[in-house]
C-alpha cells in the first residue's frame, strides 16, 4: 500500500458517497446513468468473487464488501425507490455494445485461462469503459448538475491516482500488471475531456454545460 493507492481508493470511496448523498438528499437520481451503475455492479461482482478464495487484508475485504453493497443499493435507489426521477430517455447507451466485446476480449487476452481469472479480466476491461453511458448521457443533455460533476471528478481522479500507484509499484515493488495498467490508462483517458471541462467551468463556479 502506497500513498497513491490509498488516495485513489479514498477518491473512489468519496465518489460513491457523493453519489449516494446526492440521491438521498435530493430524493432524485436525475442526470445519473442507470446503465453505468449496472455496469459498475457487474464489475464489482465479477472482480470480487475472490472474496471467497483469497484473503488479503481487513481493509481489502471491507472495501470490497462496501463497493459491492453500495453498487446494488444505488441500483435499488435508481430503479425502485427514486424510479420516478430516473431520466431513462437520455440513458440510451446500449450496454451490450460494451459487455459483449469486453467479454470476448477477456476470453482472448488474459493472464491465465481460468474461470476466476477470466472474470477478473472481464471486470478490469469492463470498468475501463463502464463510465461511457454516463458520459454519453451528459453529452446528450449537454449539461450536468454540479454535484454530478463532482462525482465524476472523484471517479476519474481515482483512476489517475492508480496510474501513479502503478508507476510507484513498478519502481519500488517490481510489480507490473499489464492488463490492469493498459485498461486503467484507457479508463483515465476517457475522463480527460471531462477533466478539462471540470477545471475550466465547475471550479470557476459555473455549471458544467457543453457547447451546442
Amino acid at each position: 500500500m502506497n500513498v497513491f493507492r490509498l488516495l485513489g481508493d479514498m477518491s473512489h470511496l468519496l465518489a460513491i458517497l457523493i453519489l449516494l448523498l446526492k440521491m438521498w438528499k435530493t430524493r432524485s437520481c436525475a442526470g445519473i446513468s442507470g446503465k453505468t451503475q449496472i455496469l459498475f455492479a457487474l464489475v464489482f461482482t465479477t472482480r470480487y468473487l475472490d472474496l471467497f478464495s483469497s484473503f488479503i487484508s481487513i481493509y481489502n475485504t471491507t472495501m470490497k464488501l462496501f463497493f459491492i453493497a453500495s453498487s446494488y443499493f444505488t441500483i435499488f435507489l435508481m430503479y425502485s425507490k427514486f424510479k420516478a426521477t430516473y431520466d431513462s430517455n437520455h440513458d440510451s447507451f446500449r450496454m451490450e455494445f460494451l459487455v459483449v466485446p469486453v467479454g470476448g476480449l477477456a476470453f482472448l487476452v488474459n493472464h491465465e485461462f481460468l474461470p476466476l481469472e477470466i472474470l477478473w479480466t472481464f471486470s478490469i476491461y469492463l470498468e475501463s469503459v463502464a463510465i461511457l453511458p454516463q458520459l454519453f448521457m451528459v453529452s446528450k443533455t449537454g449539461e450536468a448538475e454540479t454535484i454530478t460533476s463532482h462525482y465524476l471528478f472523484a471517479l476519474g481522479s481515482y483512476r489517475l491516482l492508480y496510474i501513479f500507484n502503478w508507476v510507484y509499484r513498478y519502481y519500488f515493488d517490481g510489480f507490473f500488471d499489464l492488463i490492469a495498467v493498459v485498461a486503467g490508462c484507457v479508463q483515465t483517458i476517457l475522463y480527460c475531456d471531462f477533466f478539462y471541462l471540470y477545471i475550466t467551468k465547475v471550479l470557476k463556479g459555473k455549471k458544467l454545460s457543453l457547447p451546442a
Binding site: 475472490d50 470490497k64 493472464h111 491465465e112 500488471d177 499489464l178
Partner: peptide, 10 residues
C-alpha cells in the same frame, strides 16, 4: 509478477 499474479488491488 503480473502473469496471473495475486490481485491485491481494488
Amino acid at each position: 509478477n503480473g502473469v496471473g499474479g495475486k490481485h491485491d488491488e481494488l
